[in-house]
Amino acid sequence: MPDTITLQVARYRPESESAPTLQEYEVPLREEWAVLDGLNYVKDHLDGTLSFRWSCRMGICGSCGMTVNGDPALTCGTFLTDYAPGPVRVEPLANFPVIRDLVVEIDDFLHKLPEVKPWLVRDDDGGVDDVEFLQTPEQLDAYKQYSMCINCMLCYSACPVYGIEPDFLGPAAIALAQRYNLAPATSAHQRLDVLATDAGVWACTYVGECTRACPKGVDPAGAIQRYKLTAAARTLLPWGKR
């Protein structure tokens, strides 16, 4: 195994450039180093001007999503040795506007997330005295995987529909909606106005890349597909519960 590996890192300095360029850095190649460790080595030893987001280094915070050799990935969970002998191309998440270097603007996603009311919504507002909602393990299993989302936005980066139609509500938001739709203590039709729209589930053509990109085993493509059936039944059938 060679001692070093080349990182080709996308740089974008809005004050002096109109488009990103690639800059090469030689970083140590160590068995236990993730791409994020390579970037931190650059930041600490080679070039302090490089900007990127990261926090937990353990696949929980969802901050360090980038495009590694063309694939959306959490850089803390993607190891340099898997790309040896290199080079490794590190670019910002696709489909998002770039603020600087590897930092993308996430405002659009942050506006969409609360649109789907990601909390328990009930028809009968029982008040705070009666807040214990019991559920069986089977009921938990029905939605548990959707609750594993860490908002890393890799699925938006992998979704070509979101790239072409920025209005699209997108994989993570719809998966999160399904997480609350399928919870036994909630009324699912509350989110119909947001989900069963042209920019909601109907924009999805099931490319399926969101599910493949997810680092937490969430299946947003499946969530969307399943909600299409629900949405069709609720909007078209006279006996569909409105």
Binding site: D107, D108, H111, P166
Partner: peptide, 25 residues
């Protein structure tokens, strides 16, 4: 200096689309 890619609240003003639902079915 930076406005969001889409105006907030745009999604919530949309209506369920029966036409798209029928087309998909």
């Amino acid at each position: 200096a930076r406005k969001p890619a889409e105006p907030a609240g745009r999604v919530s003003t949309a209506k369920p689309s029966r036409v798209e639902a029928a087309a998909w079915l």
